[in-house]
Write a protein that binds this DNA or RNA. Structure first.
Lengths: 334, 334
DNA sequence: GTGAAAGCGCTAACAC
DNA sequence: GTGTTAGCGCTTTCAC
């Protein structure tokens, strides 16, 4: 392995000078700089990140922890972070939290041990107190898809309420009158916000949403399928169905067709998230676009900014808005 | 930041002893070990990975480079590597290669700079010579989804030919007689192997595959859609369609329905890869399961094994087989 | 503009 | 069993 010493020796300069040309800072003579550069090239020298992290007490690494990288949503998230990392010349360290409090904490610890300059965290299970403490210890920590008032400026999140309001309003405007909702069995954060947005929009428009027309299930395809089956079994009649997310929406569409109902002719369906899966199903899914990729990219730049000692504390939070993506699962009945 | 020195001081022992208890190796007295452990806990000490990587000349990090982490296939791949990393107590460094030779090389270099113990590489664009050289320099390098004879034991790959043979045979056995194929416009590696498997299986069964019944397109949904449109525009008649991958198969199904043909009643469709998207479409896609996740996990353990100085060179390669997943896009016409 | 030197926190001989 | 010590490759004052 060729080190900075080797370069210095061959170039006939000190390692300090080599370090200066590598980082383009400090004063170095033009000829000297050129020679050192040439020798770095010739020798194929690559700085040792570990050594530089140790010496400078900050690594060129950014960490991201998500529940499970294999899921489409988190893939987009990681991709956004990766882009931000790449543009800032940082390496990306990744850890899965596996939907568990303990492994989530482990994941964070493992990133801290590496002196990550910034950490993007999609935390579902840690409590607010833990996260607030973490934030106070890690300047470059940013939460994505979660809002905690005490650390508002570290939160990059989505307005779920307005998102589901837009979805509901769209169905109202297209002449739907009988609504049903399939939502997640875990009525915390996202699911409850989305249901809330639906409820208040329908109420404002004097449309009833009988409790019996709301069904819960796990937030995946099977969950959506079962929820709609349950709805149908109860004899619910509806021409519009709002799903907690795209996965449930897809499951819902399956169940509807299996029951002999057509989408969108008999029932219109709207999802949420805008996963790529939405253009695979027939009809193509009308949904709310969750700009997770952009948010992750934004969060990364924010985290890098915050990690710098010059960062000024701010009370500003970072809220994104979901946008309606019209495709083929909604029929205009007006 | 609390260091190993702080722990040693408080515990009244030397840093060597602390290091020993951290790594559970070397001889340490029971009482001493217990006390040190307690103090580590109390002080909230976390070893600095960069320092240990520097001192030991090997980091507890494994790297993975894929074209784009946001794609489902690579998400599964990364997930398999992550699992292997976690089980071996390693951190996962990730880099996107963005489908370009240069950035692929950059990604690899950036991982090397971090002294990654092992690297899992999904390389599409680097030439064999480059990869062979890389392999000689990095003991823990393993290629996934690529086979290079000279470094066979570093390759974890899939038998595309047998996979597509199984798919073709299945369609023959279910009474199909008129075949069409939509494949990738880039007829290298995977695409050409898959087409080859189809061709020789059909030939062996005395079934003609007119050249006109093979259409190329980009290997995504749109590509599949356009390819089938082209097929139909040419007046091709077929009751069985083999797609290069699931994405193209989904696009094909869209195009078929849009042209008034039903899947599977009029045309049976078989994909390849078994992406999660396959259960989103209607009909659910019959496809060949590509065990990327398992392969990535396997590759990770292999890479870790190879990275150890005790590793013995081997000529064995690591070939996986695709399995047929029967769902609803094929109709038995026999 | 350039160099010398003191660490960064840890590992791994080696000594006792 | 436990401690001492010499680095690992780099950054960063400080001196010249």
């Amino acid at each position: 392995m060729v080190t900075i010493n080797d370069v210095a020796k061959v170039a006939g300069v000190s390692i300090a000078t080599v370090s200066r040309v590598i980082h383009n800072k400090g004063k170095v003579g033009d000829v000297c700089r050129a020679r050192v550069k040439k020798i770095i090239e010739e020798l194929g020298y690559r700085p040792n990140n570990n050594a530089s992290a140790l010496a400078s007490k900050t690594s060129n690494t950014i960490g991201v922890v998500t529940p499970s990288i294999s899921m489409s949503f988190f893939g987009s998230l990681a991709s956004g972070v990766e882009k931000g990392a790449r543009e800032n010349n940082l390496k990306l360290l990744m850890a899965n939290s596996l939907y568990e409090t303990e492994s989530e904490l482990n994941a964070i610890e493992s990133l801290r041990a590496n002196n990550c300059k910034a950490i993007i965290l999609h935390s579902e299970y840690s409590d607010e107190k833990t996260l607030i403490k973490l934030a106070s210890e890690i300047p470059g920590l940013v939460l994505i898809n979660r809002y905690i008032p005490e650390i508002a400026n570290r939160c990059v999140w989505l307005d779920n309420i307005s998102g589901s309001q837009v979805a509901a309003k769209y169905l109202i405007d297209t002449g739907h009158t009988n609504f049903a909702v399939v939502t997640s069995i875990y009525q915390n954060r996202d699911p409850s916000s989305r249901v809330e947005g639906i409820k208040n929009t329908l109420a404002k428009n004097h449309i009833k949403l009988p409790k019996i027309n709301i069904e819960e299930g796990s937030s995946n395809i099977e969950g959506g399928e079962q929820a709609v089956k349950a709805l149908l079994a109860k004899g619910c009649k509806f021409d519009a169905l709002l799903a907690y997310n795209d996965l449930m929406a897809i499951g819902a569409i399956h169940a509807l067709f299996d029951a002999g109902l057509r989408v969108p002719e008999d029932v219109s369906v709207v999802g949420f998230d805008d996963l790529s899966i939405g253009i695979a199903c027939r009809p193509r899914l009308t949904t709310m676009h969750y700009p997770v990729n952009e948010m992750a990219f934004y969060a990364t730049n924010l985290a890098i900014k915050l990690s710098k000692p010059t960062a000024t504390p701010s009370k500003q939070t970072h809220l994104f808005i979901a946008e309606l993506v019209k495709r083929d699962s909604v029929m205009d009945r007006s």
